[in-house]
Design a binder for these strands. Sequence first.
DNA 1: CGTTAAGTTGAAGTGAATCAAGTACCGTGG
DNA 2: CCACGGTACTTGATTCACTTCAACTTAACG
Lengths: 236, 236
Amino acid sequence: MPHTYRVDRTEECKPYKASEFFRTLSAAALADFESLAIRQTYAPREVLFEEKRNPSRVFVLLEGQVKLSMNSMDGRRLILRIAGPGELPGLTSVLSGKEYEMTAEVLCPCKIASMHRQEFLGFLLRHPAAYASVARDLSQEYTRACEQLRTVGLAATAPVKLARLLLELCGGAQQTERGTQFRLTLTHGEIGECIGTSRETVTRTLSDFKSRHLLDFRGSTLMIHNHLALANCAEV
Amino acid sequence: MPHTYRVDRTEECKPYKASEFFRTLSAAALADFESLAIRQTYAPREVLFEEKRNPSRVFVLLEGQVKLSMNSMDGRRLILRIAGPGELPGLTSVLSGKEYEMTAEVLCPCKIASMHRQEFLGFLLRHPAAYASVARDLSQEYTRACEQLRTVGLAATAPVKLARLLLELCGGAQQTERGTQFRLTLTHGEIGECIGTSRETVTRTLSDFKSRHLLDFRGSTLMIHNHLALANCAEV
DNA sequence: CGTTAAGTTGAAGTGAATCAAGTACCGTGG
DNA sequence: CCACGGTACTTGATTCACTTCAACTTAACG
Protein backbone atom coordinates (compact mmCIF):
# COMPACT_ATOMS: atom_id res chain seq x y z
CA MET A 1 0.00 0.00 0.00
CA PRO A 2 2.44 2.73 -1.11
CA HIS A 3 1.45 6.24 -0.06
CA THR A 4 1.95 9.22 -2.28
CA TYR A 5 4.52 11.54 -0.80
CA ARG A 6 3.47 14.87 -2.13
CA VAL A 7 4.44 16.84 0.94
CA ASP A 8 2.61 20.12 1.25
CA ARG A 9 3.72 22.78 3.70
CA THR A 10 1.97 25.77 2.23
CA GLU A 11 -1.07 25.52 4.49
CA GLU A 12 -1.11 27.12 7.92
CA CYS A 13 -2.06 25.05 10.96
CA LYS A 14 -5.53 26.53 11.02
CA PRO A 15 -7.13 23.25 9.99
CA TYR A 16 -5.79 21.66 13.15
CA LYS A 17 -7.47 24.22 15.33
CA ALA A 18 -10.74 23.69 13.56
CA SER A 19 -10.55 20.07 14.59
CA GLU A 20 -12.28 18.89 17.73
CA PHE A 21 -9.20 16.88 18.61
CA PHE A 22 -6.70 19.74 18.59
CA ARG A 23 -8.94 22.47 19.93
CA THR A 24 -8.13 21.82 23.56
CA LEU A 25 -4.40 21.20 23.06
CA SER A 26 -1.85 23.68 24.40
CA ALA A 27 0.08 25.78 21.90
CA ALA A 28 3.24 23.88 22.81
CA ALA A 29 1.61 20.51 22.19
CA LEU A 30 0.17 21.71 18.90
CA ALA A 31 3.59 22.95 17.76
CA ASP A 32 5.17 19.65 18.80
CA PHE A 33 2.57 17.72 16.84
CA GLU A 34 3.01 19.97 13.84
CA SER A 35 6.78 19.48 13.85
CA LEU A 36 6.41 15.70 13.75
CA ALA A 37 3.61 15.42 11.21
CA ILE A 38 3.98 15.50 7.47
CA ARG A 39 1.21 16.71 5.19
CA GLN A 40 0.26 15.01 2.01
CA THR A 41 -2.42 15.13 -0.61
CA TYR A 42 -4.25 11.92 -1.41
CA ALA A 43 -6.22 11.13 -4.52
CA PRO A 44 -9.59 9.35 -4.61
CA ARG A 45 -9.39 5.56 -4.30
CA GLU A 46 -6.09 5.70 -2.45
CA VAL A 47 -6.07 3.53 0.67
CA LEU A 48 -4.78 4.98 3.95
CA PHE A 49 -4.82 1.65 5.75
CA GLU A 50 -6.41 -1.77 5.44
CA GLU A 51 -8.13 -3.99 7.98
CA LYS A 52 -6.04 -6.85 9.41
CA ARG A 53 -2.86 -4.83 8.89
CA ASN A 54 -0.80 -3.59 11.80
CA PRO A 55 -1.10 0.14 12.47
CA SER A 56 1.92 2.11 11.31
CA ARG A 57 0.81 5.74 11.15
CA VAL A 58 -1.70 8.16 12.68
CA PHE A 59 -3.76 10.10 10.17
CA VAL A 60 -5.41 13.46 10.70
CA LEU A 61 -7.93 14.31 8.04
CA LEU A 62 -7.62 18.03 7.32
CA GLU A 63 -9.66 18.28 4.14
CA GLY A 64 -11.79 15.91 2.12
CA GLN A 65 -13.62 12.69 2.88
CA VAL A 66 -12.49 9.17 3.71
CA LYS A 67 -14.66 6.06 3.55
CA LEU A 68 -14.28 3.70 6.50
CA SER A 69 -15.50 0.20 5.81
CA MET A 70 -15.23 -3.48 6.71
CA ASN A 71 -14.87 -6.07 4.00
CA SER A 72 -15.53 -9.77 3.99
CA MET A 73 -13.70 -12.08 1.68
CA ASP A 74 -16.86 -12.94 -0.26
CA GLY A 75 -17.14 -9.36 -1.50
CA ARG A 76 -19.64 -8.06 0.99
CA ARG A 77 -18.90 -4.69 2.55
CA LEU A 78 -20.14 -2.68 5.51
CA ILE A 79 -19.51 1.07 5.39
CA LEU A 80 -18.93 2.31 8.93
CA ARG A 81 -19.02 5.97 8.06
CA ILE A 82 -17.67 8.74 5.88
CA ALA A 83 -15.03 10.55 7.90
CA GLY A 84 -14.69 14.30 7.42
CA PRO A 85 -12.17 17.03 8.32
CA GLY A 86 -10.90 16.95 11.88
CA GLU A 87 -11.22 13.20 12.33
CA LEU A 88 -8.46 10.71 13.14
CA PRO A 89 -9.50 7.48 11.46
CA GLY A 90 -7.91 4.37 12.92
CA LEU A 91 -6.85 6.06 16.15
CA THR A 92 -7.99 3.09 18.24
CA SER A 93 -5.69 0.67 16.49
CA VAL A 94 -2.75 3.04 16.71
CA LEU A 95 -3.26 3.25 20.47
CA SER A 96 -3.83 -0.42 21.16
CA GLY A 97 -1.31 -1.65 18.60
CA LYS A 98 -3.81 -4.23 17.45
CA GLU A 99 -4.58 -4.65 13.77
CA TYR A 100 -6.92 -2.22 12.03
CA GLU A 101 -10.54 -3.34 12.24
CA MET A 102 -11.46 -1.35 9.13
CA THR A 103 -10.21 -0.06 5.79
CA ALA A 104 -9.84 3.66 5.04
CA GLU A 105 -10.21 4.72 1.43
CA VAL A 106 -10.04 8.27 0.11
CA LEU A 107 -13.30 9.44 -1.50
CA CYS A 108 -12.46 12.92 -2.74
CA PRO A 109 -9.05 14.60 -2.83
CA CYS A 110 -7.78 14.86 0.74
CA LYS A 111 -5.23 16.83 2.69
CA ILE A 112 -3.96 14.64 5.45
CA ALA A 113 -1.37 15.05 8.17
CA SER A 114 0.27 11.89 9.46
CA MET A 115 3.12 10.60 11.57
CA HIS A 116 4.59 7.31 12.61
CA ARG A 117 2.81 5.46 15.39
CA GLN A 118 5.85 5.47 17.65
CA GLU A 119 6.27 9.20 17.22
CA PHE A 120 2.64 9.74 18.13
CA LEU A 121 2.97 7.58 21.24
CA GLY A 122 6.04 9.63 22.18
CA PHE A 123 4.02 12.78 21.63
CA LEU A 124 1.35 11.47 24.01
CA LEU A 125 3.98 10.74 26.66
CA ARG A 126 5.32 14.29 26.41
CA HIS A 127 1.82 15.78 26.47
CA PRO A 128 -0.39 13.62 28.71
CA ALA A 129 -3.09 16.26 28.51
CA ALA A 130 -3.59 15.15 24.92
CA TYR A 131 -5.03 11.89 26.29
CA ALA A 132 -8.15 13.88 27.12
CA SER A 133 -8.54 14.64 23.41
CA VAL A 134 -7.88 11.00 22.58
CA ALA A 135 -10.51 9.89 25.08
CA ARG A 136 -13.00 12.37 23.65
CA ASP A 137 -12.40 11.14 20.12
CA LEU A 138 -12.64 7.47 21.09
CA SER A 139 -15.81 8.17 22.98
CA GLN A 140 -17.34 9.74 19.89
CA GLU A 141 -16.30 6.86 17.68
CA TYR A 142 -17.76 4.40 20.14
CA THR A 143 -21.05 6.25 20.24
CA ARG A 144 -21.21 6.13 16.46
CA ALA A 145 -20.42 2.42 16.42
CA CYS A 146 -23.26 1.84 18.85
CA GLU A 147 -25.61 3.85 16.69
CA GLN A 148 -24.73 1.70 13.72
CA LEU A 149 -25.14 -1.46 15.77
CA ARG A 150 -28.61 -0.22 16.61
CA THR A 151 -29.39 0.38 12.96
CA VAL A 152 -27.83 -2.74 11.52
CA GLY A 153 -28.38 -5.20 14.34
CA LEU A 154 -31.54 -4.11 16.07
CA ALA A 155 -33.71 -2.65 13.32
CA ALA A 156 -35.84 -5.42 11.91
CA THR A 157 -36.59 -4.26 8.39
CA ALA A 158 -34.92 -2.41 5.55
CA PRO A 159 -37.27 0.62 5.67
CA VAL A 160 -36.44 1.15 9.33
CA LYS A 161 -32.72 0.98 8.66
CA LEU A 162 -32.92 3.35 5.72
CA ALA A 163 -35.06 5.85 7.61
CA ARG A 164 -32.55 5.82 10.47
CA LEU A 165 -29.65 6.41 8.09
CA LEU A 166 -31.40 9.27 6.31
CA LEU A 167 -32.21 10.99 9.60
CA GLU A 168 -28.60 10.60 10.68
CA LEU A 169 -27.29 11.97 7.37
CA CYS A 170 -29.61 14.99 7.33
CA GLY A 171 -28.58 15.99 10.85
CA GLY A 172 -27.53 19.63 10.68
CA ALA A 173 -28.72 20.17 7.11
CA GLN A 174 -30.47 23.33 6.09
CA GLN A 175 -34.16 23.68 6.78
CA THR A 176 -36.51 25.21 4.24
CA GLU A 177 -40.23 25.84 4.51
CA ARG A 178 -40.76 22.63 2.53
CA GLY A 179 -38.58 20.46 4.80
CA THR A 180 -34.96 19.47 5.31
CA GLN A 181 -32.83 19.49 2.17
CA PHE A 182 -29.35 18.05 1.72
CA ARG A 183 -27.04 16.42 -0.81
CA LEU A 184 -26.88 12.64 -0.73
CA THR A 185 -23.36 11.97 -2.02
CA LEU A 186 -23.63 8.20 -1.59
CA THR A 187 -24.82 5.93 -4.39
CA HIS A 188 -27.68 3.52 -3.73
CA GLY A 189 -25.12 0.76 -3.61
CA GLU A 190 -23.15 2.57 -0.92
CA ILE A 191 -26.29 3.30 1.08
CA GLY A 192 -27.01 -0.40 0.97
CA GLU A 193 -23.52 -1.09 2.28
CA CYS A 194 -24.13 1.31 5.17
CA ILE A 195 -27.22 -0.50 6.39
CA GLY A 196 -26.62 -4.03 5.15
CA THR A 197 -29.16 -4.30 2.37
CA SER A 198 -28.97 -4.66 -1.38
CA ARG A 199 -28.79 -1.83 -3.91
CA GLU A 200 -32.20 -2.72 -5.31
CA THR A 201 -33.86 -2.67 -1.91
CA VAL A 202 -32.54 0.86 -1.37
CA THR A 203 -34.07 1.99 -4.66
CA ARG A 204 -37.40 0.35 -3.90
CA THR A 205 -37.62 1.60 -0.31
CA LEU A 206 -36.62 5.10 -1.35
CA SER A 207 -39.31 5.28 -4.01
CA ASP A 208 -41.78 3.84 -1.50
CA PHE A 209 -40.95 6.72 0.85
CA LYS A 210 -41.38 9.08 -2.11
CA SER A 211 -44.78 7.69 -3.00
CA ARG A 212 -45.83 8.17 0.62
CA HIS A 213 -44.71 11.82 0.37
CA LEU A 214 -42.21 11.46 3.21
CA LEU A 215 -39.44 12.77 0.99
CA ASP A 216 -38.48 13.71 -2.53
CA PHE A 217 -35.31 13.50 -4.61
CA ARG A 218 -33.98 14.81 -7.89
CA GLY A 219 -30.48 13.69 -8.71
CA SER A 220 -28.39 13.65 -5.56
CA THR A 221 -30.50 16.26 -3.77
CA LEU A 222 -32.82 14.82 -1.18
CA MET A 223 -35.61 16.70 0.55
CA ILE A 224 -37.32 15.33 3.63
CA HIS A 225 -40.86 16.66 3.66
CA ASN A 226 -42.31 14.83 6.61
CA HIS A 227 -39.58 14.60 9.20
CA LEU A 228 -41.91 13.27 11.86
CA ALA A 229 -43.35 10.49 9.75
CA LEU A 230 -39.85 9.42 8.73
CA ALA A 231 -38.78 9.36 12.37
CA ASN A 232 -41.80 7.18 12.94
CA CYS A 233 -40.58 4.79 10.24
CA ALA A 234 -37.20 4.78 11.97
CA GLU A 235 -38.86 3.71 15.21
CA VAL A 236 -37.09 6.32 17.30
CA MET B 1 -34.08 3.45 39.02
CA PRO B 2 -33.31 3.15 42.79
CA HIS B 3 -30.06 1.36 43.59
CA THR B 4 -29.65 -0.90 46.58
CA TYR B 5 -27.36 0.72 49.09
CA ARG B 6 -25.84 -2.22 50.85
CA VAL B 7 -22.42 -0.68 51.35
CA ASP B 8 -19.69 -3.22 51.84
CA ARG B 9 -16.27 -2.18 53.06
CA THR B 10 -14.90 -5.50 54.21
CA GLU B 11 -13.08 -6.22 50.94
CA GLU B 12 -9.57 -4.99 50.35
CA CYS B 13 -8.75 -3.02 47.21
CA LYS B 14 -7.17 -6.08 45.62
CA PRO B 15 -9.99 -6.38 43.06
CA TYR B 16 -9.06 -2.97 41.73
CA LYS B 17 -5.51 -3.99 41.08
CA ALA B 18 -6.63 -7.09 39.27
CA SER B 19 -8.46 -4.82 36.87
CA GLU B 20 -6.85 -3.72 33.65
CA PHE B 21 -8.09 -0.21 34.28
CA PHE B 22 -6.47 0.32 37.68
CA ARG B 23 -3.28 -1.65 37.12
CA THR B 24 -1.33 1.29 35.74
CA LEU B 25 -2.65 3.87 38.20
CA SER B 26 -0.36 5.35 40.82
CA ALA B 27 -0.92 4.37 44.46
CA ALA B 28 -2.08 7.91 45.20
CA ALA B 29 -4.62 7.87 42.38
CA LEU B 30 -5.88 4.47 43.47
CA ALA B 31 -6.31 5.67 47.04
CA ASP B 32 -8.11 8.78 45.82
CA PHE B 33 -10.47 6.67 43.73
CA GLU B 34 -11.04 4.29 46.61
CA SER B 35 -11.92 7.15 48.97
CA LEU B 36 -14.61 8.44 46.58
CA ALA B 37 -16.17 5.15 45.54
CA ILE B 38 -18.77 3.23 47.44
CA ARG B 39 -19.11 -0.52 47.19
CA GLN B 40 -22.40 -2.27 46.91
CA THR B 41 -23.79 -5.69 46.22
CA TYR B 42 -26.33 -6.03 43.42
CA ALA B 43 -28.79 -8.86 42.93
CA PRO B 44 -29.61 -10.50 39.59
CA ARG B 45 -32.06 -8.55 37.40
CA GLU B 46 -31.12 -5.24 39.01
CA VAL B 47 -30.45 -2.52 36.45
CA LEU B 48 -27.31 -0.38 36.80
CA PHE B 49 -28.36 2.03 34.09
CA GLU B 50 -30.73 2.25 31.16
CA GLU B 51 -30.27 3.44 27.59
CA LYS B 52 -31.56 6.95 26.81
CA ARG B 53 -30.95 8.02 30.41
CA ASN B 54 -28.35 10.59 31.33
CA PRO B 55 -25.25 9.15 32.98
CA SER B 56 -25.13 9.75 36.73
CA ARG B 57 -22.53 7.33 38.09
CA VAL B 58 -19.43 5.41 37.06
CA PHE B 59 -19.52 1.70 37.78
CA VAL B 60 -16.58 -0.61 38.32
CA LEU B 61 -17.49 -4.26 38.18
CA LEU B 62 -15.44 -6.06 40.84
CA GLU B 63 -17.20 -9.41 40.90
CA GLY B 64 -19.98 -11.04 38.91
CA GLN B 65 -21.42 -10.50 35.45
CA VAL B 66 -23.46 -7.72 33.88
CA LYS B 67 -25.42 -8.00 30.64
CA LEU B 68 -25.05 -5.02 28.32
CA SER B 69 -27.81 -4.76 25.73
CA MET B 70 -29.76 -2.45 23.46
CA ASN B 71 -33.53 -2.63 23.38
CA SER B 72 -36.03 -1.48 20.81
CA MET B 73 -39.53 -0.50 21.76
CA ASP B 74 -41.03 -3.44 19.86
CA GLY B 75 -39.39 -5.92 22.24
CA ARG B 76 -36.34 -6.78 20.16
CA ARG B 77 -33.02 -6.87 21.96
CA LEU B 78 -29.36 -6.91 20.97
CA ILE B 79 -26.93 -8.17 23.60
CA LEU B 80 -23.64 -6.30 23.23
CA ARG B 81 -21.68 -8.43 25.64
CA ILE B 82 -21.51 -9.93 29.09
CA ALA B 83 -19.19 -7.70 31.10
CA GLY B 84 -16.96 -9.34 33.70
CA PRO B 85 -14.79 -8.23 36.65
CA GLY B 86 -12.52 -5.29 35.98
CA GLU B 87 -14.78 -3.64 33.41
CA LEU B 88 -16.34 -0.17 33.60
CA PRO B 89 -19.62 -0.46 31.71
CA GLY B 90 -21.00 2.81 30.42
CA LEU B 91 -17.69 4.68 30.78
CA THR B 92 -18.14 6.36 27.39
CA SER B 93 -21.40 8.01 28.34
CA VAL B 94 -20.01 9.17 31.67
CA LEU B 95 -17.15 10.87 29.84
CA SER B 96 -19.16 12.44 27.05
CA GLY B 97 -22.14 13.27 29.20
CA LYS B 98 -24.42 11.96 26.47
CA GLU B 99 -27.18 9.52 27.25
CA TYR B 100 -26.36 5.85 27.74
CA GLU B 101 -26.45 3.92 24.47
CA MET B 102 -27.12 0.64 26.28
CA THR B 103 -28.75 -0.95 29.30
CA ALA B 104 -26.73 -2.72 32.01
CA GLU B 105 -28.49 -5.50 33.90
CA VAL B 106 -26.96 -7.67 36.63
CA LEU B 107 -26.82 -11.36 35.69
CA CYS B 108 -25.37 -13.00 38.78
CA PRO B 109 -24.76 -11.37 42.21
CA CYS B 110 -22.24 -8.56 41.72
CA LYS B 111 -19.88 -6.51 43.80
CA ILE B 112 -19.66 -3.11 42.25
CA ALA B 113 -17.84 0.10 43.14
CA SER B 114 -19.36 3.34 41.92
CA MET B 115 -19.17 7.09 42.29
CA HIS B 116 -20.95 10.14 41.00
CA ARG B 117 -20.07 11.27 37.51
CA GLN B 118 -18.91 14.69 38.71
CA GLU B 119 -16.67 13.12 41.32
CA PHE B 120 -15.13 10.88 38.68
CA LEU B 121 -14.51 13.84 36.36
CA GLY B 122 -12.86 15.63 39.26
CA PHE B 123 -10.75 12.55 39.89
CA LEU B 124 -9.61 12.63 36.27
CA LEU B 125 -8.67 16.29 36.55
CA ARG B 126 -6.56 15.57 39.63
CA HIS B 127 -4.95 12.53 37.99
CA PRO B 128 -4.58 13.19 34.26
CA ALA B 129 -2.48 10.04 33.98
CA ALA B 130 -5.70 8.11 34.51
CA TYR B 131 -6.79 9.27 31.06
CA ALA B 132 -4.40 6.70 29.65
CA SER B 133 -6.40 3.99 31.40
CA VAL B 134 -9.60 5.53 30.13
CA ALA B 135 -8.26 5.58 26.58
CA ARG B 136 -7.17 1.95 26.86
CA ASP B 137 -10.58 0.89 28.10
CA LEU B 138 -12.44 2.85 25.41
CA SER B 139 -10.16 1.40 22.77
CA GLN B 140 -11.02 -2.11 23.94
CA GLU B 141 -14.72 -1.39 23.95
CA TYR B 142 -14.49 0.04 20.46
CA THR B 143 -12.67 -3.01 19.17
CA ARG B 144 -15.37 -5.21 20.61
CA ALA B 145 -18.10 -3.09 19.06
CA CYS B 146 -16.40 -3.44 15.69
CA GLU B 147 -16.17 -7.20 16.11
CA GLN B 148 -19.89 -7.33 16.76
CA LEU B 149 -20.60 -5.08 13.80
CA ARG B 150 -18.64 -7.57 11.70
CA THR B 151 -20.70 -10.45 13.05
CA VAL B 152 -24.10 -8.80 12.99
CA GLY B 153 -23.75 -6.51 9.99
CA LEU B 154 -21.33 -8.20 7.66
CA ALA B 155 -21.95 -11.92 8.12
CA ALA B 156 -24.58 -12.97 5.61
CA THR B 157 -26.17 -16.03 7.22
CA ALA B 158 -27.12 -17.26 10.67
CA PRO B 159 -24.61 -20.18 10.67
CA VAL B 160 -21.76 -17.74 10.01
CA LYS B 161 -22.86 -15.47 12.83
CA LEU B 162 -23.27 -18.33 15.27
CA ALA B 163 -19.89 -19.84 14.39
CA ARG B 164 -18.25 -16.46 14.94
CA LEU B 165 -19.90 -16.06 18.33
CA LEU B 166 -18.93 -19.56 19.45
CA LEU B 167 -15.31 -19.02 18.47
CA GLU B 168 -15.31 -15.73 20.35
CA LEU B 169 -16.86 -17.30 23.45
CA CYS B 170 -14.49 -20.26 23.54
CA GLY B 171 -11.47 -17.98 23.38
CA GLY B 172 -9.24 -18.98 26.25
CA ALA B 173 -11.19 -22.08 27.19
CA GLN B 174 -9.46 -25.30 28.19
CA GLN B 175 -8.23 -27.62 25.46
CA THR B 176 -8.65 -31.39 25.73
CA GLU B 177 -7.52 -34.08 23.32
CA ARG B 178 -11.08 -34.12 21.98
CA GLY B 179 -11.27 -30.38 21.35
CA THR B 180 -12.09 -27.14 23.14
CA GLN B 181 -14.57 -27.44 25.99
CA PHE B 182 -16.39 -24.66 27.81
CA ARG B 183 -19.62 -23.76 29.58
CA LEU B 184 -22.19 -21.93 27.55
CA THR B 185 -24.02 -19.92 30.18
CA LEU B 186 -26.32 -18.21 27.69
CA THR B 187 -29.70 -19.61 26.76
CA HIS B 188 -30.51 -20.15 23.09
CA GLY B 189 -32.70 -17.10 23.27
CA GLU B 190 -29.82 -14.99 24.56
CA ILE B 191 -27.48 -16.35 21.91
CA GLY B 192 -30.03 -15.26 19.34
CA GLU B 193 -30.06 -11.79 20.88
CA CYS B 194 -26.27 -11.63 20.59
CA ILE B 195 -26.24 -12.30 16.85
CA GLY B 196 -29.63 -11.01 15.79
CA THR B 197 -31.45 -14.24 15.02
CA SER B 198 -34.39 -16.08 16.54
CA ARG B 199 -34.23 -18.65 19.33
CA GLU B 200 -35.38 -21.40 16.98
CA THR B 201 -32.71 -20.64 14.42
CA VAL B 202 -30.05 -20.99 17.12
CA THR B 203 -31.38 -24.43 18.06
CA ARG B 204 -31.53 -25.57 14.44
CA THR B 205 -28.10 -24.25 13.50
CA LEU B 206 -26.55 -25.70 16.63
CA SER B 207 -27.93 -29.16 15.93
CA ASP B 208 -26.83 -28.79 12.31
CA PHE B 209 -23.27 -28.17 13.55
CA LYS B 210 -23.68 -31.19 15.82
CA SER B 211 -24.80 -33.45 12.99
CA ARG B 212 -21.77 -32.34 10.99
CA HIS B 213 -19.56 -33.30 13.96
CA LEU B 214 -18.16 -29.80 14.33
CA LEU B 215 -19.18 -29.74 17.97
CA ASP B 216 -21.17 -31.50 20.67
CA PHE B 217 -23.19 -30.38 23.65
CA ARG B 218 -24.79 -31.90 26.74
CA GLY B 219 -26.61 -29.45 28.93
CA SER B 220 -24.69 -26.21 29.07
CA THR B 221 -21.32 -27.80 28.29
CA LEU B 222 -20.19 -27.29 24.74
CA MET B 223 -17.28 -29.08 23.09
CA ILE B 224 -15.83 -27.89 19.82
CA HIS B 225 -14.39 -30.92 18.03
CA ASN B 226 -13.40 -29.42 14.74
CA HIS B 227 -12.10 -25.96 15.46
CA LEU B 228 -10.82 -25.45 11.93
CA ALA B 229 -14.06 -26.42 10.22
CA LEU B 230 -15.99 -24.11 12.54
CA ALA B 231 -13.59 -21.27 11.73
CA ASN B 232 -14.27 -22.08 8.11
CA CYS B 233 -18.01 -21.70 8.75
CA ALA B 234 -17.26 -18.36 10.43
CA GLU B 235 -15.47 -17.21 7.30
CA VAL B 236 -12.43 -15.91 9.17
C1' DC C 1 -21.52 10.68 -29.07
C1' DG C 2 -20.30 6.54 -27.39
C1' DT C 3 -19.08 4.18 -23.24
C1' DT C 4 -19.46 3.26 -18.50
C1' DA C 5 -21.61 3.69 -13.98
C1' DA C 6 -25.85 4.26 -11.56
C1' DG C 7 -30.66 3.77 -11.10
C1' DT C 8 -35.14 1.29 -11.97
C1' DT C 9 -38.44 -2.39 -12.26
C1' DG C 10 -40.21 -7.17 -12.51
C1' DA C 11 -40.01 -12.15 -11.50
C1' DA C 12 -38.25 -15.99 -9.14
C1' DG C 13 -35.87 -18.13 -5.26
C1' DT C 14 -34.55 -18.57 -0.40
C1' DG C 15 -33.07 -18.03 4.36
C1' DA C 16 -34.91 -17.17 8.35
C1' DA C 17 -38.96 -15.41 11.16
C1' DT C 18 -43.07 -16.74 12.90
C1' DC C 19 -46.53 -19.78 14.46
C1' DA C 20 -47.68 -23.95 16.60
C1' DA C 21 -47.27 -28.05 19.25
C1' DG C 22 -44.75 -30.74 21.76
C1' DT C 23 -40.72 -32.53 24.90
C1' DA C 24 -37.17 -32.26 28.52
C1' DC C 25 -35.71 -30.37 32.62
C1' DC C 26 -35.65 -28.14 36.56
C1' DG C 27 -37.13 -26.82 41.72
C1' DT C 28 -41.19 -26.69 44.88
C1' DG C 29 -44.61 -28.31 47.71
C1' DG C 30 -48.45 -31.49 48.56
C1' DC D 1 -42.70 -39.87 46.00
C1' DC D 2 -45.05 -37.72 42.35
C1' DA D 3 -47.94 -33.91 40.65
C1' DC D 4 -47.17 -29.26 39.49
C1' DG D 5 -45.68 -24.93 37.13
C1' DG D 6 -42.21 -22.64 34.97
C1' DT D 7 -38.50 -22.25 31.78
C1' DA D 8 -35.77 -23.79 28.15
C1' DC D 9 -35.30 -26.54 24.20
C1' DT D 10 -36.88 -29.01 19.94
C1' DT D 11 -39.12 -29.78 15.57
C1' DG D 12 -42.30 -29.10 11.65
C1' DA D 13 -45.23 -26.09 8.62
C1' DT D 14 -46.15 -21.76 6.80
C1' DT D 15 -45.12 -17.12 5.57
C1' DC D 16 -42.55 -13.17 4.31
C1' DA D 17 -38.99 -9.81 3.41
C1' DC D 18 -35.29 -9.52 1.06
C1' DT D 19 -31.79 -11.23 -2.28
C1' DT D 20 -30.66 -12.47 -6.63
C1' DC D 21 -30.99 -12.44 -11.48
C1' DA D 22 -32.16 -10.19 -15.59
C1' DA D 23 -33.46 -6.63 -18.73
C1' DC D 24 -33.77 -2.07 -19.33
C1' DT D 25 -33.52 3.21 -18.69
C1' DT D 26 -31.16 7.16 -17.33
C1' DA D 27 -27.34 9.94 -16.13
C1' DA D 28 -22.45 11.10 -16.21
C1' DC D 29 -18.33 12.12 -18.68
C1' DG D 30 -14.25 12.26 -21.65
